[in-house]
Nucleic acid binder design. Structure first.
Lengths: 141, 141
DNA sequence: TATATTAATGCAACTTAGTTGCATTAGTCA
DNA sequence: TGACTAATGCAACTAAGTTGCATTAATATA
C-alpha cells in the first residue's frame, strides 16, 4: 500500500495533473479501510467539503484503474462496484453477511496448485482470479 | 444436475404451476453449457418461439433462485448477472479472456484449508465462497 | 367438464448505476 | 503571466433490472 505522496508524485511524473478532486479521491480511498462504491466515495468527498461530481468521480475511477492505482471489486451480494487502492500483495475479501463489513485476507501459498491442475487437465492458462469468502465475522456469529 | 422432469415434479409438488414460460426457461438453462444472462435467456426463448417478457423472465429467475434450482453468478469482467441450473457439486468457472467462453471446474479438496485458517486467525466463519479464474483457453493461447 | 381460485403474466412506467458529448475551468510549463 | 490542454461539470442518455396493477391461465374441486 503506497502513501499519498508517492502516488501523486508518480502521477505528476507521468504528466497528469494533481487536481483537488484527484487528490481528495485518492485520500479518501486510502483512508477507507473497506472498498468504497462510487456513491460512497461521493458522500465521503461531500463530507470533506470537496465538490464531487458523478461524472468526474466515475472518470477518475476509470483513470486510477488504468494507472493501476485502484482496483475494482464486484461482490456477489451487491449490484454496485467497489474500489480500493491496490495493495502491495494480491489479496481477497471476507464479507460478513451479518454486518456487511468487508475485511482483507492474504492467503499463504494461494491457488497455484489449482492453477497448475487447470493448466494440465484443460490446457487453460490462468492469468488472474477472484476469490471472496462470505460468512459471519467474529462479532456477528 | 437434475433432469427437467425431476425439477418440474418438485415444483409441482410444492404447489407451483408448470407454465410454458417456467418449463421453457428451465429447459433452456439445462441445455446451455454456459451460464446465461437474462438477455441471453430471452433470446434463446424467442428462438424457440416461446414468448418471453422481460418482467416474467426476471421474476422467474428470482423464483428459481429462491427454490435453489438456479444460481446467480457475477463475473468480474461483466456488468450483467448470469444464471445456471445448480449442479450437484459446488464448482467454479474458467473465464476465457479471449473468446469469453465460460467453463466449469470442480476443484479437489477445495478451499477448506483456507477456511480453517480464516476461522482460526480471524474468528470469521466462512459459509460460502466464490472463485473464478480468468485466463486463456486452449484455443485462444 | 365447467368453475373458482389465485399463481403467473405482461405492459408501462420507474429506478439505479454508469456513460457520453460538449462547452467551460483550472493545473502546469515556458 | 499567458498558452496549452487535461480535467471538470452539466444535461441528456443507456442498460439492467424492478414495481404496480389489471389480465390471463394452470390447477383443484365440484
Amino acid at each position: 500500500m503506497k502513501a499519498l505522496g508517492e502516488i501523486l508524485a508518480e502521477l505528476s511524473k507521468g504528466g497528469f495533473r494533481i487536481t483537488r478532486a484527484r487528490r481528495s479521491m485518492i485520500e479518501v480511498l486510502l483512508d477507507s479501510r473497506l472498498p468504497l462504491s462510487a456513491e460512497g466515495l461521493i458522500d465521503a468527498l461531500l463530507g470533506k467539503k470537496v465538490p464531487a461530481n458523478k461524472t468526474t468521480v466515475y472518470r477518475e475511477l476509470t483513470f486510477l484503474k488504468e494507472m493501476g492505482i485502484v482496483q475494482e471489486i464486484q461482490f456477489l451480494h451487491e449490484r454496485v462496484k467497489r474500489y480500493e487502492v491496490v495493495f502491495g500483495g494480491h489479496h481477497h475479501h471476507l464479507i460478513c453477511m451479518g454486518c456487511k463489513r468487508v475485511e482483507d485476507v492474504e492467503l499463504e501459498g494461494e491457488l497455484e496448485k489449482y492453477e497448475r491442475e487447470i493448466m494440465n487437465s484443460r490446457g487453460f492458462k490462468v492469468l488472474n482470479h477472484t476469490l471472496e469468502f462470505m460468512g459471519l465475522c467474529e462479532d456477528c456469529r
